[in-house]
Design a protein around this nucleic acid. Sequence first.
DNA 1: CGTACGTTTGATCTTTCTCAATAATGGTGG
DNA 2: CCACCATTATTGAGAAAGATCAAACGTACG
Lengths: 244, 244
Amino acid sequence: MTSHPLDLFVRHLDSRARLGEEDRQAILGLPYSIEKLRTSEFALHAGEAHPSCVIILRGIAGRHRHSDGGRQIVSVHLPGEPANLQHLILENAEGGVQMLTAGTVAAIPCDALADLAMERPAISRAFFASVAAEASISREWLLNTGRRDGAQRLAHLMCELAVRLEAQGLSEQYREGLPLKHNQLSDILGLTPVHVGRILKQFAAKGLVSARKRPIAVSDWKQLRQLCAFDPAYLHLSKAKAGS
Amino acid sequence: MTSHPLDLFVRHLDSRARLGEEDRQAILGLPYSIEKLRTSEFALHAGEAHPSCVIILRGIAGRHRHSDGGRQIVSVHLPGEPANLQHLILENAEGGVQMLTAGTVAAIPCDALADLAMERPAISRAFFASVAAEASISREWLLNTGRRDGAQRLAHLMCELAVRLEAQGLSEQYREGLPLKHNQLSDILGLTPVHVGRILKQFAAKGLVSARKRPIAVSDWKQLRQLCAFDPAYLHLSKAKAGS
DNA sequence: CGTACGTTTGATCTTTCTCAATAATGGTGG
DNA sequence: CCACCATTATTGAGAAAGATCAAACGTACG
């Protein structure tokens, strides 16, 4: 019986730092409200004063920041992942979080989460681990945009999303294809939509993805992994340190 | 009397989440060992099994990751800042931390820090805030490399380092100039050393930095800030949320 | 079945890289 | 204090990855 909306969130936390049964139940007992959002709707507004903590339940969300050079998506949030756990403590001084596809999210009051973290060390540790792992992902993205070419960047992103989905037990989810538009991918990768299209054409020519199908479906994961030398260690999905 | 080596670390934590006097004393009472390191020496080796927590006391350190496209420095650590607080919980699955200048660091056993966080909620909150703020910085760097051109990237980095130093009360520190080499800057910014050199030449021509002096000395901060539209909000230096 | 949005294509332009040679710098031992 | 060596910086010419612009083409959805 895994029908509770927050089950995926529990799974996310547990994949970074082991939780006990009571911890799990405590999380499932948190107050929350569910919201259905369409593509491009904001799950969290930039600079919003006292945000709730947003958990993605279905679909994909992205956080962005802007400069005069354009928009950059600085993180992506998959089902089960929190979008703004940092706001338990830090003020909201970052860009907004917007849906990249249609989806649903759960909003949990920050206070309730903070109280829970206070009472339960394992949960506190899991929150810390979640934020730290997200930081590690950002640093990998930095390596991606700073030192890899377009094709490697795209390949790396697709590999990462696949592994993260799998960790949530959602590997089937996007088997038919990654439901992101070229302009969304380009904003993640620091490229232009046009160039993303050309890279995908190359991928299709090499048989890495199925040609000319809108949700981008990968047909050769092995080559894709080799292309960008993908190593998932930075995702910290190995249940981390035992003990203390 | 501010002569304790860890004073700067206390100041770093306090600038993210307020500490009480007892919290401060508790941190100053932590066990630590001091190490002098030369340029390029490792403060922390990549993949090292059970690392201590490293605090920079003097000099500048950088964390890097590698791909076949080259080296990328994914974060920079100034005096007072911890280099690997994430290892309190996560395994060390990231690149190493290397000195970018000569300097000294303090190594604190992770266990001691973890115990302290367990006992003192304010310290636990401060650690969380520190890691979360560092994540926010990584995301800003992502915007930097993804969507700004070379000149803006360099200007942004220089502004950020100045503000971070100032937050530590070290604004005098590098008044004579930023002691980073072109190849270090290029590894931070995702450029090549020769291009960094050309950008600096442009800066000198525009009077932004003093021409032809090795430690790069900024002579017009205002223009530099305007050039990259620098907004320090993402650094989360405003003592964050009050209460709870 | 038309309109809005996304994709594809081609031509051209910029930014940045690459390579290589020369010059400057800084630290070290004599 | 000076000469030497390794490292770093500068300069120039050529190449490449990716951006830009604009038009044509698809596709989905009301």
